[in-house]
Every structure is written in C-alpha cells, then in structure tokens.
Nucleic acid binder design. Structure first.
Lengths: 245, 245
DNA sequence: ATAATTCTGTTTGTCTGACAACTGGAATTA
DNA sequence: TAATTCCAGTTGTCAGACAAACAGAATTAT
C-alpha cells in the first residue's frame, strides 16, 4: 500500500546537487553561452566540497553537452542547440506554462505512436493493450480505493501502444516523460483518478483509442489519443497546485 | 570554409569511454535490469584506470537513471522505463532500421511544431522563417558549392518554426535531434544537398510549409512538414552507407 | 532453541594531495 | 622586431585514505 508514508528525504548525492545548481545558473541566464565557469578549485571552495565532487558534477554537464571543457584553459557554457540529451528539470513542474508545454509535446508524440500502432500492431499486442483497458475498467468499478491501480494500468496501456508501434524510440521517449510526470505529479493524478464523476467519462476516452486500434484506423487512433491527453493535461493543470507565472 | 580538413580525433575523456562501454553492455543485454555491476574497485582494475575515473563514468549513468547505486551494497542496473533522460547513442546511426525509427519520431514532432506555429506565430517570427527560406533558395541557385550553407539554412528554418510555436520543449527536442543527426550524417546530407536534380523539388517542399504558416493553416503546415521530412528520411537512408540489419 | 544485538567486512561516497597534459601569455633571446 | 623559451594556471588522471551505510555472520540475551 502506498501513500501511507512520505518518502524520507534521503541525503542526495553531492555531485547531483551541484550539477543542478550550475545547470540552474545556466537556465536562469546567470551563465550565458560562451561564459567561462569558475575553476574547479574555485567551485570546490565555493560549494565547500572536494574537487572530485565538483569534477563529477561538471562531468555530468559535459556529458549532456551543456558545457565544454578545454584542458589547460577552462570550462565554458556551450551554445544552445549543442545538447546531446533531452532532459526535464523538476523546475518545469513548478510553473503552469512549462507544464502545459511539456504535456503538449507528450500529447503529440503519444498520438503519433497510436497512429503508427494502428497499422503496425500484431494480434498479441492488441490483446495486451485490451487487457490493460480491462484493468482500468475494473479499477474504476472498484472505486476510489483502486485509484493507484487505475493509474498504473493507464500508463501500461499507453506504453503497450507505444510498443505496438514497433518504434523503440517512441517507447523510450514516452516512458521517460511518463516517469517524470508521474514522479512529480503522482499525488495530483491520484486525486484526479479518485474523482469518481470522471471515471466513466475518461474510460470512454481510452476505449475510443482501443476501438480505433482494433479497426486499424490510424487517424481515428491519433484523434482519440490526442483528445484524451489534451483533456488529461487540462485536468492535471487545473488541479495542480502550481504558480500561474 | 568547412570541409577542408577533418577534425583530428582528440583523445576522448576516459570516463565517457567507460560510460559508453558499460552502457553498451546494458544495451546488448550482457547486463540486465537488476544485475549488479562489478565494484568500482574491480572496474578500475579491469579498465586499468583510477577509481575516480570509474566513479565519474558510473555517475553519468546514475544521472541518466540507467543504474542505481546503494552505498554499502553495490550498483545495479535499473528497470527499463526509469530513465530520466532521452539520449541517442551513436550506434543508432549504424543500422538502417534504427535510423528510420529515429527520423520517424523526428518527423512527427517537427510536424506538430509546425502545426502549432501556424496558429501561434507572430509577425517577426514569420519574417525570420521567410528569411531562412530565402537563404536556402539562394544557396540552391548558387549550386553545389553552397551545399553546406543550404543545410545550415534548412536547419535554421525548422528551428525558427519550432521557436515560433512558443513551446520551448519543441525547440529543445528538435535542436537535440538535429544536432545528433547532423553530427552523424553530415557528409551524407551534404551529398544529398549537392544532388542538383533535387534542389528545386526540395525547395518546393519547404515553400509549402512556409505558405501554410503564412495562411495560418495548422493542418496544411503539419502535412507539408510531414511530407518533407518523410521524403528527406527516405533520401537520407537510401544514400547512407549503413547495414540493412 | 530462538530472537535480538553486536561485530565485521564490503561497497559506495567524500576528502586530500599529487602529478601529467595542455594552454595562453609573459619573459627571454636571436 | 620576431621567434623562442619559460611559467603560472587549468583540466585530466592517479593514489590512498577515511566516513557512511549496508548485509550477513557472530555473539549474546531471552
């Protein structure tokens, strides 16, 4: 049973903390592309940690292409558009606008995945997808107690669709986004799932997607998926307790 | 002037090399989710480097959520779907199927971005976009000598569209993909751009996108963008010298 | 005999100091 | 004046040490 206890705040690793700090300085414009970072020695004294820790932190940012280092010279903030990874910072869940933008991107990708799956799916995949839809139905029938199960089944439903598309990148991308959203907005999503007046309504959205897949109609699948995720985004953002600016 | 000299292969950083090695072991299934990694001490002797180097490498993978470490116990491969970043490994450009999948994902996202931009764009943005289209036209008129400029203008054209969408995540995502594709397939793309018989044809594809934006017609913009990127993907994959399996 | 506790070795996390490789510019020399 | 050499500074790597946390064995108490 989850929800009884909040996860204790484990002492995070120092390098992650420092990487986040530097990354934030770049995002907020305190460090602009081309700017030179303080030396590792300087950073280690500023943060009050050993240089090895600073090195690990800087190494993370180098790996993402956020900064570039030249031996004997220093480390510099890279030009934008040189990133080698797509990553969502937790700060994005603090502002409504950023959140909506993220969910908008996800909606489009997820709709594409459904459209692909509509024509590409094999029989066993459809069976799997249908099973998750039944899971959701059962969870809704069971009422608010099974809200968590409902959410898990929903995530599995759309993950299965992504897998049925036959494109591994959709699976990876969707899984990544889903994980981030879940990690940051789980509690809000649970509240939404518990709002029983929505149960049947939302279920119909999923069912429409499934029917479109069964009919191998890509455009219907895309439209149905888009409809659900657009509404879900609205429900989430409406209920999320975040700043409007 | 680019293209005269190839960039010398600088000795890569050890941590990146090791991170890549471990990551590959996971991708190929030599290390499965739940498996325990060798100890840092063991890895340092196996790779013949200091533990600090191994630590940096492992730290990168931890940051991506590929592995999780417990002090006093060891480091373990995470379950799939726990990644906190979306990253494209260079290996993806070695197999035609993976490449097509990647380009398919990009096509969908880019098409969505265009659809959004069609309704969201402001006047100055449209002007910027049009300027890049003219750049491309000029480059095509100048012939094969300006192939590189053509490519740069094309990338800038679609980046500008993403910016006009008003959604920062589209900008980030598209920039990341574009960079990876460019880095790995630049030479192929140049050859394509130099194939003069395509010049006018391709230019018409871009122009169609621009016209749809000007007309503020989202579905037309989406369709035109999709058409271009699907054809571009085909041209790229046809010419790319990669394995079919 | 069983359950609780303590001890111990292992592993990751952090610290410290050192040296190597490399760079840009200053000081020196031709 | 121009070329060369030298030097302080910075990142990259190395080596060793200790702290923190954990799993399981050994010990003790019930």
């Amino acid at each position: 049973m989850t929800g009884l206890f909040d996860r204790i705040d484990r002492p995070r690793r120092l390098p992650d903390e420092i990487a986040r700090s530097i990354s934030q300085a770049i995002d907020t414009g305190q460090l602009k592309p081309g700017d030179r970072l303080p030396t590792e020695h300087s950073l280690s004294t500023q943060f009050g940690v050993a240089r090895t820790v600073v090195r690990e932190a800087v190494s993370l940012l180098k790996y993402d292409g956020v900064i570039e280092a030249k031996r004997g010279v220093g480390a510099f903030v890279s030009e934008v558009g040189n990133r080698s990874a797509f990553r969502i910072s937790p700060a994005c869940f603090e502002k409504r606008q950023r959140l909506m933008q993220l969910l908008q991107l996800r909606t489009g990708v997820q709709a594409d995945a459904s459209a692909l799956a509509a024509t590409a799916h094999k029989k066993p995949a459809l069976k799997r997808i249908g099973a998750f839809l039944q899971d959701m139905t059962a969870a809704v029938d069971a009422g608010t107690a099974e809200a968590e199960r409902h959410l898990d089944a929903e995530a599995a439903f759309y993950r299965a669709i992504a897998e049925a598309s036959g494109n591994d990148y959709y699976v990876e991308f969707i899984a990544m986004i889903e994980r981030q959203v879940d990690e940051n907005l789980r509690s809000v999503a649970v509240k939404n799932a518990m709002a029983s007046e929505w149960g049947a309504k939302v279920l119909a959205e999923h069912a429409a997607v499934f029917e479109a897949l069964k009919a191998r109609d890509p455009e219907a699948a895309r439209a149905a998926t888009r409809t659900h995720f657009e509404r879900a985004a609205k429900r989430l953002a409406d209920r999320a307790d975040i700043a409007d600016v």
